[in-house]
Design a protein around this nucleic acid. Structure first.
Lengths: 231, 231
DNA sequence: TCAAAAGTGTTGGTGCTACACCCATGG
DNA sequence: CCATGGGTGTAGCACCAACACTTTTGA
């Protein structure tokens, strides 16, 4: 059991919709190695914390943690040569920040389009891509939209978030019906003022639930009966 | 960047259907700590390998690797006190062995029902539970059955595998239709002899594909068109 | 009164579950 | 020819995408 020891870092791909695009939070490295390239926030794991605690601590230094609506583990990146110098293993996380949260960012930190990244440090581009893919997959069978959208929104506003995140057209009509059928949306009773060009004012909604819920589990091999689930 | 270094181990929850139950491969610890308790196979990460390479190497010592039909990463277990002694972080994997593979096992190693584990070492019970849950979820929206079932099987034989893995009844009629509709099954043309009590001989099938395929992605927010996918 | 934007009604199609029925074998 | 188990036909339901239509606003 005398196995070697390795450095361990925690990295977070924090995604959010900003200016109509799906973006990831990156900071520009001021020092070698990879000076001038853009990196994911994160850093070394401390002796007294587990990786979940660590990622939240590290994010708190970039973003007010209360603004991060969802955090989940992606996977381990462990190529021996993934970084120069002493070997470091990384546990990668996906974080999501709603678009009405506008955290004050340090000067070296900015949101970059996840589909058009600037030159990135180490293997961080692969981590960002894996975060993007995880988000896209989960949007379609969970209520994860709550972590991208603002607290309150109109259906067409929500639709734009889904379009930006998924990268393909989404029908507002059917989006509303799917989310309503599954009881994910609740009307607030308010309406949003119509724009400069007129038009009927939109009803305002919020998500009924702001924690992750799988809505399509066991689509095929569903456990029998479960009477009462449909409400 | 002078963060501390930690031991890193790789652990595999190898699941398979044995004697009609979903079981996990465990070995009995002969030494303290946790002597006499049952542990998942695995061990320290070497300096020149990544975690995926490592888990396959470690499994080769217990099971002929060619018999492991599927391996995937679960998550990191990193509680500072998860093991006594110097801190060790674990990357946990799910491995699946088809029921027609019968690897020769070392004397200290045995298959145990995953829903009725013997006393387990460290946090290994939680890892086994997370492997079981991952398997159950993926069975319902992927072709992952190929990694549990034998190479060739009858529908009712396959049904028993799903029942054992999921823990709830599954209809053979509908199982066949669902898997056929998605082109996951191919008839071999052979039939299996009927049992002592008679009955029509069953047709023999195999999975068309023996690598993981997601069959239900984007059930809700499906990308538009994709002409020709249905074939 | 017209254009714009939001929201609802409706229709046709697909996939799924349940159940009834037919098929092939051993005794 | 009967019991046993395998396999298919089909009816009804739920869900869903597309599209036409109605509603409510600003100019």
């Amino acid at each position: 059991m005398t196995s070697p020891a390795f450095g361990h870092e925690v990295l977070a791909a924090v995604l959010g919709i900003r200016d109509g695009r799906l973006r990831v939070l990156l900071w520009e490295r001021a020092r070698d190695p990879d000076r001038g390239r853009w990196a994911l926030p994160g850093g070394g794991l401390r002796a007294d914390e587990d990786v979940e605690t660590s990622v939240r601590r590290q994010l708190a230094e970039k973003v007010d943690v209360r603004e991060v609506a969802h955090v989940e583990q992606l996977s381990v990146f462990s190529d021996p040569d993934r970084t120069p110098g002493p070997r470091t293993i990384a546990t990668a996380f996906l974080g999501l920040v709603p678009s009405d949260a506008d955290p004050v960012l340090p000067a070296d930190t900015a949101w970059h389009p996840v589909d058009a990244l600037p030159p990135t440090a180490f293997d961080h581009a692969a981590i960002a891509a894996s975060a993007r893919d995880r988000l896209r997959a989960k949007l379609s069978y969970t209520n994860l939209g709550f972590a991208l959208a603002p607290r309150e929104f109109t259906i067409s506003g929500l639709r734009e978030h889904y379009v930006a995140a998924l990268g393909h057209p989404v029908s507002a009509t059917n989006l509303q019906r799917v989310l309503t059928r599954r009881d994910l949306l609740a009307p607030t009773g308010e309406t949003a003022p119509s724009g400069r060009a007129g038009g009927r004012p939109a009803a305002v909604f919020r998500f009924t639930d702001r924690t992750l819920r799988v809505t399509d589990a066991f689509a095929v091999l569903r456990p029998p009966a479960q009477a009462g689930t449909a409400s």
